[in-house]
């Protein structure tokens, strides 16, 4: 990796100030994407601002029907949280199946969501549960957050501070892992929310997206069969040596069916 200035601010304000001062600074959460990118010399930031020492960004709080998770909370902490497991079991289970033990002990929910990797797991949960992303500047609805491949609504200098998930009466996540990387080739999160069923897909497209037709079908009849007949168009989906867009489109239906079945 190339040389950079390393900062470890204690507050969000200091982090933002450090970024402003840097000629080409970069925030680092768990570093699970940034560090490999740096090691491959695919990025050359002037400054890396590590958010790991900002205590305010960590922790899990359940308040009535909302689970709020601090942005720097690690996947392993979400996976192990009895409160999350009780409030939204599907979310704890999702966290427990991200990457491997090392990734789960370093990677953070805020980092994952801010990065909007097309194959990350959390974006499916954020979108399907209709979460709210809180930053140092504002609150952003999940539906307005994911904009494209590694693209989100976050502006320069904006840091996710927490993510609030409304509980759902039913929810489940089914991932079809890429055989090599074990990232989601297709992951489908289904949730029966206060505003009706929501279905979000990760891995298949440029970023997480909802499948309206499946949601409508589930609103009429919450059952695996309801989504079995809904095919998403392959057009625009990801294609690589592991799966064509057509295969991914097919898997969306299969995983949705299985997710609905698992949600009960």
């Amino acid at each position: 990796m190339y040389d950079f200035e390393y900062h470890k601010p204690k507050s969000v304000a200091d982090a933002v100030a450090a970024l402003k001062k840097a000629s080409d600074g970069k925030f680092m959460a768990g570093g699970m994407t940034l560090i490999p990118t740096l090691k491959q010399r695919l990025a050359q930031p002037s400054d890396v601002i590590d958010l790991g020492a900002i205590g305010d960004l960590r922790g899990i709080k359940v308040d009535g029907n909302t689970v709020t998770i601090g942005a720097m909370t690690k996947h392993a902490e979400v996976a192990a949280s009895a409160e999350v497991a009780k409030a939204i079991p599907a979310l704890a289970k999702l966290a427990a199946n991200i990457g491997d033990g090392q990734v789960r002990n370093r990677g953070t929910i805020g980092g994952s969501v801010a990065n909007s990797d097309p194959a990350a797991d959390y974006p499916a949960a954020v979108l399907a549960l209709g979460a709210t992303i809180t930053t140092n500047e504002r609150k952003i609805a999940a539906d307005d957050f994911f904009k494209g491949l590694f693209e989100t609504a976050l502006k320069e200098g904006e840091i996710i501070t927490s993510i609030s998930f409304p509980t759902a009466t039913k929810a489940a996540y089914m991932k079809f892992p890429n055989p090599a990387s074990r990232y989601a080739m297709v992951g489908v999160f289904v949730a029966q929310t206060a505003s009706g069923p929501r279905v979000a897909v990760t891995g298949a497209g440029a970023c997480a997206f909802r499948v309206k037709e499946m949601e409508d079908a589930l609103a009429k009849n919450w059952s695996p069969d309801a989504v079995a007949g809904v095919k998403v168009p392959a057009d625009g989906l990801n294609g690589d040596i592991h799966g064509s867009p057509e295969y991914r489109a097919h898997l969306v239906t299969v995983m949705a069916k299985r997710a609905v079945a698992a949600a009960g």
Partner: peptide
């Protein structure tokens, strides 16, 4: 079932050049 060394047929780039794509 898993492993395959894949080159792009035109450019000759190794498409399975890391554990992200080469499945051990």
């Amino acid at each position: 079932l898993l492993e395959n060394a894949v080159y792009d047929k035109e450019s000759g780039q190794l498409l399975s050049g890391s554990y992200m794509d080469y499945c051990m």
